[in-house]
Design a protein around this nucleic acid. Structure first.
Length: 548
RNA sequence: GUCCCGUUGGUCAAGUGGUCAAGACGUCGCCCUCUCACGGCGGAGUCAGGGGUUCGACUCCCCUACGGGAUACCA
């Protein structure tokens, strides 16, 4: 059998040879040990937490080693194209702090190893497919989908392993004349790998995350080029990652079972394998079991979910980092102010078991991250969020910038900063009482305070209220007021002798809180009044009395 | 069905033959305190089950169970 001749009639228009591409895409000139990684999303536009999780691994591996991190669009499936998806993907990744050195960007392609869209690389794949055919390592297959289905049915009833292989591979041994005849009849064909693997034999491979793995050799004559001349994922992966000189392939564990195919393909091409790093899937608790996070049922899988609520990208990144590397949290505890990139990331410290997504933990981390942000940056961040997701707040924020800054600064500085702010939407709810148009009464006056005491408390407070008082002076007046009305000056006194008092100073100040801002809990009351200003404070109290 | 991968408290997890089995989140209690947060102290809570190997097993081997994934001209 003359395989070269066969390859010629199959690919008459391919003139380049593999060595040409080797020259066009030479090994990268990078420092010793530099890693080259890539993110290869398919352009469905849906980029989720799991993608981001893996992308951070890529990013760290490359940038920590002085290597390259690039974006390649894996659009070999024409049924999965979504308009504007690529832009959405890039934009979303940028938002969460991922910048690519190379590949597809918002203004075209960047780098010497393109094109970076698989749909534009058809000729390259075909060249290599042709080469494989010429070496007797691949062959054309003319089986129709119906024939394949029929074969599968037979295999199933015979309890044999399904697939196209061995004795089932009808087209594997077609001779030249038969192929030529079918070609002349315009019969469509795919190209299959001619597998020489033995399923009874295992090979060993070191996974960057999982360590040594033992897997059976591939024995399936898998399709490498579809009828339309576009490769399947398997083939595209092998060709691209070799030609683009990827050193580390980070991908989800759902790829683990097709690893034998990829290894076989690399072997057929006689190329060096990249280091594979198979990450864990993100799971979600569902009743008493757990399952993979799904696009359909779990809004929190979508990155937009976090963005629209106004989670800070650093918080999401920090959270992902804690589940990515088991020693990250410890490092952060020791280096609370260091930039995240100073952490030394290693794939060996990654877990290989399914990780349950933990919103509580994210929220906790988010509080810490928000607490570290400057007031100005937090203001800018909230403004940007409002711009995108709560437009009606933009004017409010801009008109009240200096007040907003004071509000955001409340109790956030000093030894023990407050940490109750998680994301923008919640932060706004939390401070909305400063603005008359968003002010709502959320809580009632405390039940243990006699209704008849409410007006005397508020009036008594208003009588002595002086915005020039310092905090201590201000509070001692409240104590006095409390005492005069029969409330204990200190909660401890009340607890010791509850029968002697109506309540304690805390009850009195809670009444003041509710009257002023419609809620029982808040940051420092004195500070809030300073920010509101005398006029608004008096106005609120007046209205509170009217409402009684 | 077959093949792969996985299994330490509610969650994330350290751990690689000898530990009182770290730490973080959550939870509970106490303290601080005008409320809420913050902070401090403390409590409860874990090696999926069964067999081996070994003086000794969370650590090594086998089996079972459970979870996940693959089994496409999708990625």
């Amino acid at each position: 059998m003359d395989y070269t001749k066969l390859s010629e009639i199959l690919f008459p228009n391919i003139s380049k040879a593999p060595k040409d591409y080797e020259e066009i895409y030479p090994p990268r000139n990078l420092p010793q040990g530099a890693k080259v990684t890539r993110l290869g999303p398919s352009p469905t536009g849906f980029i989720h937490l799991g993608n981001l999780y893996g992308a951070f691994v890529d990013e760290r591996l490359a940038h920590q080693s002085g290597g390259t991190f690039y974006l390649r669009i894996e659009d070999t499936d024409d049924k999965r194209q979504v308009e504007g998806a690529i832009e959405a993907i890039i934009e979303s990744l940028n938002y969460f702090g991922l910048e690519f050195d190379e590949g597809i960007t918002l203004d075209g392609e960047l780098g010497q190893y393109g094109p970076y869209k698989q749909s534009e690389r058809a000729e390259i794949y075909q060249c290599y497919a042709k080469w494989l055919v010429s070496k007797g390592l691949a062959y054309p297959c003319f089986c129709t989908e119906d024939e394949i289905q029929e074969m599968r049915n037979k295999q199933e009833s015979a309890k044999e392993t399904p697939g196209y292989y061995g004795k089932w591979a009808n087209c594997r041994e077609l001779d030249f004349d038969a192929v030529e005849k079918k070609l002349n009849n315009n019969m469509p064909f795919v190209i299959r790998l001619k597998s020489y693997g033995d399923p009874k034999k295992n090979f060993q491979i070191i996974d960057g995350i999982r360590g040594e793995l033992s897997m059976p050799e591939n024995f399936q004559d898998v399709i490498i080029l579809k009828q339309n001349g576009i490769p399947t994922y398997h083939f595209a992966h092998v060709i691209d990652d070799h030609l683009m000189r990827t050193t580390h392939v980070v991908r989800g564990e759902e790829w683990l079972s097709s690893l034998p195919i990829h290894v076989a393909l690399f072997k057929a091409m006689d190329w060096e394998l990249p280091v594979y790093c198979h990450t864990t899937v993100l799971m979600k608790a569902d009743g008493d079991t757990r399952r993979k996070l799904s696009k359909r049922n779990d809004p929190e899988l979508s990155l937009n979910y976090y963005r629209s609520l106004g989670y800070h990208p650093e918080a999401v990144r920090e959270y992902l980092m804690t589940i990515l590397n088991s020693n990250y949290e410890e490092w952060r505890l020791e280096n609370p102010d260091s930039p995240i990139d100073e952490f030394e990331f290693t794939t060996e410290k990654m877990s290989s078991s399914g990780t349950l997504f933990d919103l509580d933990k994210l929220n906790d981390i988010s509080k810490e991250v928000i607490a570290r942000i400057d007031d100005e940056d937090l203001y800018e961040f909230m403004l940007e969020w409002a711009n995108n997701y709560k437009e009606e707040l933009v004017a409010l924020f801009k008109e009240n910038e200096s007040m907003m800054l004071r509000i955001l600064a409340m109790d956030r500085h000093g030894e023990k900063p407050r940490k109750d702010l998680i994301y923008c939407e919640q932060i706004f709810d939390y401070i909305s009482y400063f603005f008359d148009e968003y002010y709502k009464v959320l809580n009632d006056y405390p039940e243990n305070v006699d209704r008849n005491d409410l007006v005397p408390i508020i009036n008594g407070y208003l009588e002595t209220y002086d915005p020039n008082d310092d905090q201590t002076g201000w509070f001692s007046k409240i104590r006095e007021l409390a005492t005069n009305l029969g409330y204990a000056a200190k909660p401890k006194d009340y607890r010791k002798n509850p029968e002697q008092y109506k309540g304690h100073v805390g009850d009195v100040s809670t009444v003041i809180r509710v009257a002023l801002m419609g809620r029982r809990t808040s940051p420092d009351l004195w500070e809030i009044q300073q920010i509101m200003g005398e006029e608004k404070v008096r106005d609120r109290f007046r209205k509170a009395i009217e409402a009684l």
